[in-house]
Amino acid sequence: MSDASKNPETVRLLAERHGLSKALKLFPDGVKAAAERGLKPLGELPKGTTSINSPAPIFNPARFVSEK
């Protein structure tokens, strides 16, 4: 996925899909650099962390009851 940021046409398509046509027109270098950063994969996860581990914030329906 990170290679996508090196292809100007892919960056243009992604930027337009995200509603960034104006930003792309005014600041093409900024959008290209942003695509590189945003599409860069995360570093290697620590041992034991996989795609089926729970994320840090866990949905808790009880929270909404106790809010008010």
Partner: peptide, 15 residues
């Protein structure tokens, strides 16, 4: 704008 939902979730798992 370019961070995928999957990458965000993985970052939360990493967190």
């Amino acid at each position: 704008a370019f961070v995928s939902a999957a990458k965000y979730i993985r970052a939360q798992q990493l967190r």
